[in-house]
């Protein structure tokens, strides 16, 4: 079997195994898995409103997935997407609230603010990795908590102690009357177009520019890249900054599209961590990220229908997602299994 087919088979098998384990968990805990998955399906595709909401949910997942994937391709593990998303969320909402400008300026400015905030939050671990050889995983985890607490403090500061900033001005909003009407008044917004544009941008950077070539080279072999005259440190910092931009934009989707405000958070949004699942499943390619985000975004939104329709706690989907990550991460075993299977067939 060719390598390419195996590469596609590993995530597909992982997803199937994940759903299977999910079914077993439901069965063991006394729920009906068929009812459960039917409720999940209806939660995703049941009516036009659900479809609109599902696409809305997929939007930040695409961007979070891109953020993780882009760092992966440069050999970096950005667990800090969550934190970069949170600071992006705050920055976009703040610009949306604090200024009054014509839409043509206000909306791009708010989006850029989110990108800049995410970039800054990515720059710090990038710089520390480049200058001091500090592992980015730990720094980005720590940056997540710094982001959470800082954002909460800033929300309180700008809203005079309240836990919510109130709505952004319409001129900074991504919401679209047209998309809302089309989907029975879901919260679907223009952000999906931005997310898809970013997918294209990532593909262009990676495949069509010198920068992308260098980033991938650094990701594959730092020493060889350095020997070939590339500036490894510069590339590490750039990769983290660009990754942070994607993550910050995911925050802008929530700030300017879905919610239109920022509030004090008791914990993480989870989107950043699910972004790791998205990138892994999509093998860190731009197109793969779309598939991964579609799957996980749909699962996550569809799950909200499960308690009502089938009386099953929606956390079952978190379990399924975690199991899928396990299987994708343990791809070595699945690969071994698929290859053995392939060899047996050849022998016959």
């Amino acid at each position: 079997m060719s390598n390419r087919i195996v590469n596609i088979l590993v995530p597909v098998i992982s997803v199937i195994l994940g759903l299977l384990v999910g079914a077993i968990v439901m069965l063991v805990s006394g729920y009906n898995p068929i009812e459960g998955y039917a409720a999940l399906w209806n939660g995703i595709f049941g009516d036009i409103y659900s479809i609109g909401e599902t696409i809305r949910q997929i939007t930040p997942y695409i961007l979070a997935g891109l953020a993780v994937a882009f760092a992966f391709r440069s050999g970096l593990f950005n667990i800090g997407v969550e934190g970069q998303l949170i600071v992006g969320w705050f920055a976009a909402a703040y610009v949306g609230i604090a200024f009054e400008l014509p839409k043509m300026i206000h909306l791009p400015l708010a989006i850029l603010a989110a990108a800049a905030a995410g970039a800054l939050w990515g720059f710090i671990p990038g710089l520390l990795k480049a200058k001091f050889k500090v592992h980015e995983v730990i720094v980005t985890i720590m940056m997540n908590y710094i982001a959470l607490h800082t954002s909460n403090a800033l929300v309180r500061a700008v809203s005079d102690g309240d836990a919510n900033t109130g709505s952004i001005h319409q001129t900074a909003s991504l919401s679209s009357r047209f998309l809302e009407n089309m989907t029975d008044f879901s919260r679907l917004h223009f952000g999906i177009l931005i997310a898809l544009a970013m997918v294209l941008l990532m593909w262009l950077i990676l495949e069509k520019t010198t920068l992308g070539f260098e980033l991938k080279a650094v990701g594959l072999n730092q020493h060889a890249s350095e020997y070939a005259g590339m500036n490894v440190n510069k590339n590490i910092i750039l990769a983290m900054v660009i990754s942070g931009v994607f993550a910050g934009l995911a925050g802008a989707m929530e700030a300017l599209g879905t919610f239109g405000f920022v509030s004090v958070k008791g914990g993480f949004t989870g989107i950043g961590f699910d972004g790791i699942a998205v990138a892994l499943l999509g093998a860190s390619t731009p197109l793969g990220v779309i598939f991964g985000a579609t799957l996980f975004g749909s699962l996550k939104y569809g799950a909200t229908n499960m308690p009502n329709a089938a009386d099953i706690p929606e956390e079952i989907v978190s379990i399924i997602i975690a199991i899928i990550i396990f299987f994708v991460a343990s791809g070595y075993v699945i690969r071994l299994f698929v290859e053995r299977l392939g060899k047996k067939k050849e022998a016959k």
Partner: peptide, 16 residues
């Protein structure tokens, strides 16, 4: 990655 999965699984399973 495996650690991230442990975290997701733990909170998902326990809340479930």
């Amino acid at each position: 990655v495996s650690g991230v999965a442990i975290n997701l699984l733990a909170i998902g399973l326990c809340l479930f």
